[in-house]
Amino acid sequence: MSGEYALAFKLLGVGMITVFLILFLVVVFGNVIIRLVNKYFPEAEKVLPSNTGEGISRKKLAAITAAVNIATKGKGKITNIEKL
């Protein structure tokens, strides 16, 4: 029984240290990835007009963009939106 208690205390220590270590690495690697991506692959900030000339609102524009992205699997590009 004392052997089992020793195992239990050992697992308590090793287990918690391992969980903290892994989540520490999640934090470290997450930060490294964010910094590298920010430095080498930043995405140009999209400035959406509050209202386009034809009266299309930001929300509608976002919905149209999302629909085009899904339909063209991300390859399509919106160049002009006309109200018919």
């Binding site: 208690y5 195992l7 287990g15 903290f20 934090v27 997450g30 930060n31």
Partner: peptide, 28 residues
């Protein structure tokens, strides 16, 4: 949400204490 608040990931580690404490209690 985790990538935007990476520090908070540590609390996900702290919350595993129940697993190992009950492991100890169950053996007793």
């Amino acid at each position: 949400p985790m990538l935007r608040n990476l520090r908070l990931a540590f609390f996900g580690a702290a919350a595993q204490i129940g697993i190992f404490t009950v492991f100890l209690a169950a053996i007793s």
